[in-house]
Design a protein around this nucleic acid. Sequence first.
DNA 1: TAAGCTTGCG
DNA 2: TTCACACGTTCGG
DNA 3: GAACGTGTGTCTCGCAAGCTTACG
Length: 549
Amino acid sequence: MSQASEHSTALTAADINNPFYYQENFITVIKWVTEFHARLLLKAELELIDRFLTLPQQPQALLIRLLLRKGPLFRVAKLSYPEIDSITASICALETDGWLTTEALLGLENLANLFTKAELAVLLDEDTAHNYSLAKHNKATFIAALSKQSGQFAAPEQVVSLGHHALFQRLRLMFFGTLRQDFSAFVTTELGHTRYEQVKLTTDTCAFQCRSDVDTYLYLDELSQNPEQACAADMLAALKSQAAQSTSLWLTRKRSRLLFDLGVKSAREQQFLVSNEAFEHSTHPAARLRLARSLERQGALENAFELACADPLNLDEEVGFERLKVRVGKKISQNYTTVVKAFSPPSFQLTLAPHDNSVEWAALEALQRLDDTSSYHYCENKLFCALFGLTFWPAIFAPIQGAFFHPFQRQPNDLYDADFYSRRREIIEQQFELLTQDPLRLLQRWDEKIGLSNPFVDWRSIDRALITLALSCINTTQLIAIFRRMLSSLYNLRRGFPDLIAFNPTASTFQLIEVKSPTDKLQDHQRAWLQFFAEQKIKASVCHILYSG
DNA sequence: TAAGCTTGCG
DNA sequence: TTCACACGTTCGG
DNA sequence: GAACGTGTGTCTCGCAAGCTTACG
Ligand SMILES: [Mn+2]
Ligand SMILES: [Mn+2]
């Protein structure tokens, strides 16, 4: 277990009743970042932050209001906040350091976003205006008409734009470790809409190790926002050169995702020079397989075969490489014969009348009617994930170094890393032990943790009674075996569970059923779970649906 | 004028 | 906007 | 049958205001 440096860190959210609660929270974050992670900021940035912190209270409040909104352009006349006395005075104050800038000219797109259809109509030249009516033509028509007049327009009223966007983006990223979260986390948490497990934080922990990692993230995020902009080859070159200097695992993952998408897109456009290289440089779980198939389509059969002979890194590769070798082996007279045979799970057929709801629900109803010894539930991954999340709660939220760095995290940063288990081995094994001793202990944990965010527990789709039922019907040894398999690759193996589960409380047994409509077929990872269940002597089968008439 | 969507807000 | 799953089309043997 | 691309439900809450469009 990692040692926490005892910089006890109270990061408290502001009281909602404070009319300036947003200001308080924003300042809290700024101070947190500048105090503890100043080494990731440039001198110029720190100076700018200083000036921000010394802004008079009212203009600063207004600026923060605007920073929290979509922006970056605002109509001054539309701004109104009861807690801010003089909007215009504050605007003036904010124009001195470039926090806000008045925009005299507006591009058409900005203009159209800021003003209503009626307001745009006024801007039409007089001789064209009479061709259009507000009732008959939609807003796009007016925009198109305006575009024939000009691409730039004098702002009809004062419009301001936010400055220093890059700095604030950077600060938000450094605090949250992602750009997908924003300051609304403070409020939703304060209101109790979302609740997070409280993990002891240490001030020396940040989402980022070095400044260049922050830069990298910002760059990758920008690329993923508008991937259409750069040409594919340029993008590839940029991502490649960046990869050379980065060590961070999760940034590599983020970049690999982009490279993978780039590869898929280029391959579709038959730009194989780009796509092959993009796949090669991507660590995305599906990248190698995709590359191998792409090579096959390009006719580079030897290359494809060779790649498919690599050790499979995951289930998809295992199955996909095998299929490819069989397919391509014949053509290049490699004479490859398959050793592995696809597992075929037990199955049965069920005939249904036409139904409105989904095939899973319809099958559930039909099966339930045929069998009054068991209760049927449509859970897919939800139930086993919930059991997993409850069982390993203390491990998931263990204060491992670097795993948690702000109070609004739903999961540790390394949840899907290969060493998730090894970094928590002791505590995980301890929970296995507790589970063996007393499975019903999980119900206590349910009561204790109910409502708290957990990456495996969806509180609304599962209830306490179902957990109780599950614990009384699922043999602990079997449950442990399932958990061990999940732990071997959390990212891949938290999905693929059969649609339905049926509990027989009298016999203390259960069975799993994957429903397949006539048009659907078993996915590889679903098949893998079914094979595992068969090996573990867990009753699991596929229900093939037929339709009457 | 109602419905449907986005945005802001706490 | 992401994820997991289902559905539908294309393609080659 | 395999592979690929697309569609669907779901999403962290609930409400109000403002705007646009479809509809009668
Ligand atoms: Mn399913
Ligand atoms: Mn199914």
